[in-house]
């Protein structure tokens, strides 16, 4: 395989067993550089564990994960500076101001011209008004914008997002999606997005991986999934998969 064609993320026969629970059960996929992929699945489908293994936070029981060619978690320090992550379930220190938090993370990622980068992110994410306010005193929407600014502070080549618009009002959620779309186009970053929001996945993703009970149930473009399941929306496809109607249809065919 040539250097240019190497997947940004390569997951091969990945398994994670917690005591007696198989959270991830032999999944494989490869994400092309610059692609944006949705990871769909109900609660307990294995999405978060999969993302955690890609980030090197969790050691696989079997199989391999490679990010930008580096095996995770063994070689994680070769690539962590080129990756980042955002999730509403992970906070930043509440007592620190937005600027202080961005400074700390910028230094951890060795961002050059950090003040300039923070100023650019403040403009892009409309943070200027509360840059010197404690992060804990912001609204949910403002916190999400700060978390995204943190996730983009190192201009990552691989961006992992875990339900980035959860608990946001429709207007803010739409604003976040537009920014993610723009970031991916401008920077050519590879984005893997775990979400419960089907409209979000339909709008942003060119590929959808649907997980159920730790396994990949389907993996295709949103358009081809809609055709295959004979549905109008991804939400209907998701429900078919979640309730086993997809398997029943395949068996009938």
């Amino acid at each position: 395989m040539s250097q240019a064609a190497e997947p940004a993320i390569a997951v091969d026969q990945l398994v994670k067993v917690y005591k007696t629970t198989r959270a991830v059960d032999g999944i494989s996929f490869a994400l092309e550089p610059g692609s944006i992929t949705g990871l769909l699945g109900g609660n307990g489908a294995g999405k978060t564990t999969t993302i955690a293994m890609i980030m090197g936070l969790v050691t696989p029981t079997a199989g391999t994960v490679k990010v930008l060619g580096a095996e995770m978690p063994r070689l994680r320090y070769h690539v962590l500076h080129k990756m980042n992550f955002e999730s509403p379930y992970v906070d930043m220190p509440h007592r620190l101001t937005v600027r202080q938090n961005l400074k700390v993370f910028g230094r951890l990622y060795a961002v050059e011209d950090l003040d300039g980068r923070i100023a650019a992110l403040a403009r892009e994410f409309d943070l200027s008004e509360f840059l010197d306010r404690p992060t804990g005193k912001l609204s949910a929407g403002q916190k999400t914008r700060v978390a995204l600014a943190k996730a983009l502070i190192n201009s990552p080549r691989v961006l992992l997002l875990d339900e980035p618009t959860a608990s946001l009002d429709p207007d803010t959620a739409d604003w976040v999606r537009a920014h993610l779309e723009r970031f991916r186009k401008e920077r050519g970053a590879t984005v893997l997005l775990a979400s419960h929001n089907m409209a979000e996945v339909e709008r942003l993703c060119e590929r959808v991986i649907i997980m159920k009970r730790g396994r990949i149930e389907d993996d295709d473009t949103p358009r081809r999934l809609l055709i295959r399941y004979g549905r109008e929306t991804l939400e209907e496809v998701f429900l078919d998969v979640a309730r086993g109607r997809g398997e029943a249809r395949e068996a009938a065919q």
């Binding site: 320090y77 962590l80 990756m83 992550f85 220190p93 951890l108």
Partner: peptide, 12 residues
Amino acid sequence: SRNLTNLMISPL
């Protein structure tokens, strides 16, 4: 502050 994940996925 639930910040540990941010640190663990950083180059620190």
